[in-house]
Design a protein around this nucleic acid. Structure first.
Lengths: 341, 341
DNA sequence: AATAAAAAAGTGCTCGTGCACATAAGGAGG
DNA sequence: CCTCCTTATGTGCACGAGCACTTTTTTATT
């Protein structure tokens, strides 16, 4: 039989209200009474009943605001599906979601969206652009009691509660480990990244190089090209790379542009002798896996990222559960043709 | 603003009680009234508030009983961790868990446990032995309104609500696909299974063979040995196999006994030229991955199996959500050294 | 038409928490 | 000793659903 506030009140010979004030740190309680209540709560092993909390919370009509730079980026499709699942579950508790999407890293646009939803929401989930004005805005929200969680991209030096995302470095490590297994530990490698300016891309390369160094001394990274997350650019750059370095027999695709890279490889008639490994699981990449052009891809649980983040917001609003600052890093998953679904 | 029973009652000019009776199929309502209520509920988009339901349910002191054949089987360690996480969450709603474990496939023992917990529980999660007496017992529980979900092993022809487990066939397919990538599609393969009598083991082999046939015509399965899920036995049988078929250069470990298999391979000095792939992620297998003896392992989300199952029981008890009969099959995950954690 | 029985509909309390408001106790100043 | 003010504590209702119990309406029987 679970312990309730009423039971604590009775064992202390005191009213529910006072116990409630102590347990929710709402002050106005004599020091010794507080001490008594805290100790008996601990002794009886009090755990608040979430149903009660959630029911009381319905009065408040909470809304969780979400801003994603997701337009034109297939990766976010699954993130949004995860958000949708969580939404279904939390609307059962009377909490709603307000999702705004945008395209590209435009600071002005993101600031605009932030201003637009500010007075409509009680919590913010954002895929932030790393810019001082955005950081200021996050801090401002936080001070006005709209707490913030960042998703997929982070701004560490802000007042966000925590960050939910992936360990890009580990992702690169896994990619290299997988390539090690696929090649027998000997390969001449080309890396196709989106842009060397983007943190996540760099981190993946750092992880990749780490495993190269420590585990596969016969791996040689011959060239790194920038695709600008664009297939046309990826195609041209890959063509150049293959011409310049015909010895390359393995490619690690760090970000978008997989189709362009693969097209260049296929047109050069080298799809049989170049082993390609990629990131994420977009429809495009699934197709390339089916065709056998890409051998494996490293995913970062996009669905789980969306689902977990909304759930954390819910927990915060309903039961003031403050998430740990770290530890919300999703696993990296290896996908091959046979376990796509 | 979410729709409540009260709102439906008001728009119909009728009392809450009647609406409640209709929505919970408790009868004693005139046909036309029922029709009116159902249509307005649909029109307004009524979704019951879970917090309210859960709060009302606390009165009932629900207990979920769990019986697992987990002793001495490391696979279940993570299943139990998942159960533990779900337990933490649902005790917040005043629902408790009663876990009983047993060792080995002893029908008598399992029947005993079932009788022992029967009058203490409101829901049963069981890892059943495929035996008629167990099926009868499950049906009996179900009739007496203690609904049942099977986990990891199933008894299809019983009155269980659903089964949570993995797709063993898909697991075998993934293993074969991975081996295809690791060997370049050409290999002489030995399979080490637990017992040909166990359904899950067979299914994995069937899936493995399917991909062999369809995708890797140069794969040849030369031998299948039975380890009895025992390392000593696995060691001896593997030794025999390697002596008899020295051409074998790949091994698929279907079930337990990985340590024994690997020991035989290592002692024969063949760990460099035999590629081993295994199932599950026990501490023993992690060690073998670290040492490089095993190249990859195919897991079946044990944590998720435990977590999800308890959650489904919770949903059933609190909001009468009957799970779909199928569709509770966890994904199979490829793990290599670099993405173990 | 009167009465009993059955069917249908309505009422009020419970679950645990949160919070506004009401009340009580204690202390300072006149 | 009374008033005023501060601090401490108690009370009652709300949240949404469930269910026992009561009341009203309808139907059947004489």
């Amino acid at each position: 039989m679970a312990v309730t506030i009423k039971q604590i009140a009775e064992t202390c010979n005191i009213s529910r209200g006072t116990v409630d004030r102590v347990l929710n740190n709402r002050g106005k309680v004599k020091a010794e009474t507080e001490e008594l209540i805290r100790s008996t709560a601990a002794k009886l092993g009090y755990k608040p009943n979430l149903a009660g909390k959630a029911l009381a919370a319905t009065k408040k009509n909470y809304v969780i605001g979400i801003i994603l730079i997701s337009e034109g980026n297939k990766f976010y499709d699954d993130v949004i599906k995860g958000i949708g699942q969580a939404e279904q579950e939390i609307t059962d508790y009377g909490i709603r979601i307000l999702l705004k999407t945008m395209k590209g890293y435009q600071v002005e646009k993101q600031l605009e969206l932030l201003d637009e939803i500010k007075d409509k929401i009680n919590f913010l989930i954002i895929n932030p652009i790393n810019d001082d004005r955005i950081i200021d805005k996050i801090n401002q929200f936080s001070e006005e009691n709209i707490k913030v969680i960042t998703i997929n991209t982070d701004v560490e030096n802000s007042a966000r509660l925590c960050h939910v995302g992936c360990d890009y470095k580990k992702s690169g490590e896994t990619a290299c480990g997988m390539l090690g297994l696929l090649t027998g530990g000997e390969a001449n490698i080309g890396i196709a990244t989106g842009s060397v300016k983007i943190l996540g891309h760099n981190q993946r390369i750092i992880g990749f190089n780490k495993v190269c160094r420590e585990k596969y001394p016969k791996f040689q990274v011959t060239d790194i090209i920038e695709t600008n997350d664009d297939d046309v650019c990826a195609f041209i750059e890959t063509q150049k790379m293959l011409q310049k370095y015909p010895a390359i027999n393995a490619i690690y695709i760090v970000a978008a542009g997989a189709y362009g890279v693969c097209k260049a490889v296929t047109e050069a008639g080298r799809e049989k002798d170049i082993i390609i490994i990629s990131s994420d699981k977009t429809p495009e990449i699934i197709k390339l896996l089916r065709e056998g052009t890409i051998k494996a891809t490293i995913c970062q649980q996009p669905w789980t990222q969306g689902y977990k983040t909304v759930n954390m917001a819910f927990q915060y609003l309903v039961s003031s559960v403050v998430p740990e600052k770290e530890l919300h890093i999703v696993k990296n998953e290896i996908k091959i043709l046979q376990n796509l679904k």
